[in-house]
Each structure stands twice: as C-alpha cells, then as structure tokens.
C-alpha cells in the first residue's frame, strides 16, 4: 500500500445529503411481503400520494466491493426496460440520515440501507399456478412471452423465470416479470456462470455445465411453467442436479450428437448415463389437453437450445391465434 490513511471521520458528508433524494420516511410501512437475497420486501404507502408500493430493502454491508455490483446491474437493467409486462422501478430512496439529529457526526449518514421502490402488485403467479382456467392460462402465457420477448430484443436474459418472480395484479388481468437480480445483458459470444435459474426450471444445457448460452434458457423455464399450469403440479421437480437431469431425459429423451449437435462437448455430458426409456415421450403426459397448447410446450421443451422456439415465434403460434 502506497499512501497514507485517510483521516478517520474527516469525511464530513453532512452537507452532501443529496438534495432531492427522498428517504424511506416518505413511506408508511404496511407489511412484510417477502425476503430477498439482500433484504426484505415490504408493502408500503407513499405518504404524500397515497400510492401503494413494494419496497425492496438493500442492506449495504462493509463488503470489499463497496456498493454491490449485482444491485447496480439490476438497477441499470430496470431503468433500461420499459414495458407493460415488466415490473417498473419507480425510484430509489435511502434510509434517513442520522447526521442532522446526532450533533454533527455523520459517520452513519449513509451506512444502512437503500430501498428500491417498485409498483405494487397483488400476488405472484405461484399462488394461481395450480388452479387457473385454460383462458386465464393463455392470458398469462401471452403476457409472460411479451415481457420476455421485450427483454430478449433488448439483449437481456432474465435467468430466473419461476412462479415467484412473475407478479399478478388488476384482479388477475396483468402479469409482469420481476426480480431481475440474476438478469444480465448478453452478447452472442458471451460466457456466463451456469449457476442460475431455480432447479426445477433450469434447462438441460445449464445442468450440463454450458457457460455460453442465450435466450433459450428463459424459454425452457417458460415451457416448464406452461406445463405446470396444465398439469397443476411441477413438471420436473428434481431435488438434485442429477435427479433434475434424469427427470428431463425421462420425458424428453436422452441427448446425443444426433438430436443435439455439440452436446457431447458440454463439461458434464460424460457424467450422465442413459436411463430407459430414452425416447422422447413428453406429449404422452398431455394427451387430454388442448393440442395447440401441447404443440407449443413441445417446442419450448426441446433439448437442443438452438432448436427451441423463440419468444417471438411462440407468440405467433396457433395456440395464441385460436380463441377459446
């Protein structure tokens, strides 16, 4: 280290309380509605406007990286994305400073928390996933795909599509994608971590260790949600990564160079063994359902990610054109 220590406590930032920045005191807390990676989520009401909001608390610790990178990226993405099926970040507020009341010491001025203020939504999709009518399912699926298509057009992968991250409001009429904490911008030759997406909704390429993946990872998750709507139970409820893969192969067949060119080069391909039967029999478990719906699920849950349907093409599928 080539420098002197900065004078402790010399950072008199009391005068630097950013003008115009609102604090969390502008909100009246109503109830806790959830728990995130960085802190709790509250339902609250704007004291001035009376508007309801969801406040996601971000606890700032004394980590080595300073302001958490993941939060910075989530804020950046949410500011970029503006679509009716994507949750809107209304503002960011800080916890109130103690400087003014504490006789000049500002040492704790901004230690503490910040809050991301989102529009309020009634509940998440998990609550209705196992008891929705076919027309509701179509309505939710269309909005989910529209929001996702918008993300993909803007080169953003969500990477954690699941019931708890899809929010519903307006008496079940409006669906929005939320929780972009794992989302990130992508480029065609990017390389990412494969430790994303909740296990049940995680696509085979990630389970096989791929680090170069694209939009198709989100489509797999959408396919799993779609199937779960119809079956009224999770499609692939694996408890371990190994079991997750077995459950997928049981219905979708075993991957080989013929049905998925390049699969044998994935890092974990050698660790898997074919189970019987190895033929694709996904459609068999849906024999009582709307054939257009089953066609679409079938095209979303294709092992080879490059053959999986895109959000755009899914929205043009016969399923969405035919009326109930």
């Amino acid at each position: 280290m080539d420098g002197e220590e900065a004078p402790p406590g010399a950072l008199n930032l009391a005068d630097y309380a950013p003008a115009g920045a609102r604090t969390v005191d502008c909100f009246r807390r109503i109830r806790k509605i959830g728990e995130g990676t960085y802190g709790e989520v509250f339902e609250a009401m704007d004291i001035i406007t009376g508007e309801r909001a969801a406040l996601k608390k971000i606890k700032l610790d004394d980590g080595k990286e300073g302001f958490p990178r993941q939060i910075l990226r989530e804020i950046k993405l949410l500011k970029k994305l503006d679509h009716e099926n994507i949750i809107r970040l209304k503002e960011i507020v800080v916890s109130p400073g103690t400087a003014h009341g504490a006789g000049g010491s500002d040492d704790y001025m901004y230690r503490g928390d910040i809050y991301m203020v989102f529009e309020y939504m009634d509940h998440d999709l998990k609550k209705v996933l196992h008891h929705s009518t076919p027309s509701q399912v179509k309505y939710y699926m269309e909005q989910l795909l529209k929001g996702l298509h918008y993300c993909h057009v803007n080169n953003v992968l969500h990477r954690d599509i699941k019931g708890a991250n899809l929010l519903i409001s307006g008496g079940g009429k409006l669906l929005k994608l939320a929780d972009f904490g794992l989302a990130r911008p992508f480029t065609r030759d990017g390389s990412f971590t494969n430790h994303v997406i909740t296990l049940w909704y995680r696509p085979p390429e990630l389970l096989l260790g791929a680090t170069n993946y694209a939009e198709a990872v989100d489509i797999w998750s959408v396919g799993c949600i779609f199937a779960e709507f119809l079956l009224r139970k999770p499609l692939f409820p694996g408890r371990t990564e190994q079991e997750q893969l077995s459950k997928i192969f049981e219905l979708c067949g075993f991957p080989n160079e013929e049905n998925w060119p390049g699969v044998s080069k994935l890092p974990l391909y050698k660790t898997i063994r074919p189970t019987t039967p190895t033929k694709r029999r996904l459609r068999d478990i849906f024999h009582n359902f709307d054939s257009h719906a089953v066609d679409l699920i079938d095209r979303m849950l294709i092992l080879n990610p490059t053959e999986r349907i895109s959000a755009h093409d899914a929205l043009c599928a016969a399923y969405f054109i035919t009326k109930m």
Binding site: M1, D2, G3, E4, E5, A6, L11, L13, L60, D62, G63, K64, E65, G66, F67, M109, Y110, R111
Partner: peptide, 12 residues
Amino acid sequence: TRFIFEPRTIQR
C-alpha cells in the same frame, strides 16, 4: 494515490 480509503468510505 496519496490516501487509502476504507471500502466502507468508498461505498458511502
């Protein structure tokens, strides 16, 4: 650099 700041100071 003439000074070294603690991470929490930089974060602030």
